[in-house]
Amino acid sequence: MIMGGSGEKPQLIINGKRTDGRVPDELRPIKLEVGTLKNAEGSAYLEWGNNKVLAAVYGPKEAQPKHIADPNRAIIKCRYQMAPFSSLEEHSRSGPNRRAIEISKVTKEVFENVILLDNFPGSEIDIFIEVLQSDGGTRAAGITAAAAAVASSGIPMKDIPYAVSAGKAGDLILLDLNKIEDNYSDADMPVAIAPRNNEVLLLQMDGSMSKEQFDSALQMIKKAGETITKIQRDALEARYR
């Protein structure tokens, strides 16, 4: 997983700037379009830096197979997958690996929180996230895109979540890690938040962080959330202008 095949750790910060020229609390450019796929109930295409992600939602429909149905609420099936050609590195095998299965699970849990599942007992809602090009932070991009897809579908939800990661290079907190930063950073922490009440719906972390660093990472994420939420809002409203 190392760029150019060399094992040496690159310098992540030079003169206060990151490898792609950003300052520490700067998001990559984000472009979001809603309604890209015609067959889905709701869909979204998101470009986030060099990440390119498609999300689509189908349902609610009768849960299949029958025995997985929950008599009291809808169930969500979620699949996150990376295209075999998505990375700048070598071709990857298609099909779910352990990483994709875990991301699918935690993504599903984000949407179990915000979608009003009680309205549809015995049914299922399917969320599909396909990463067409990857450059670090694809789970956050996937959740942000899927949230817009669900919001465009008419499936009731109590809020539109967003996701973004923060990490650490040395003692410096960085927002929205790209692939190189992700590979060499000292910590990575993807977070999803329902902005209305600032509820944290996804939180993962690996590396090392002090309590203070965690606090400032979360503050950075919340501030970035305002920008991401605005992008989601603009994309959804654009369909009806």
Binding site: M157, I160, P195, R233, L236, E237
Partner: peptide
């Protein structure tokens, strides 16, 4: 008329 989103 104002556009309203889920959560508004």
């Amino acid at each position: 008329m104002k556009i309203v989103l889920p959560g508004d």
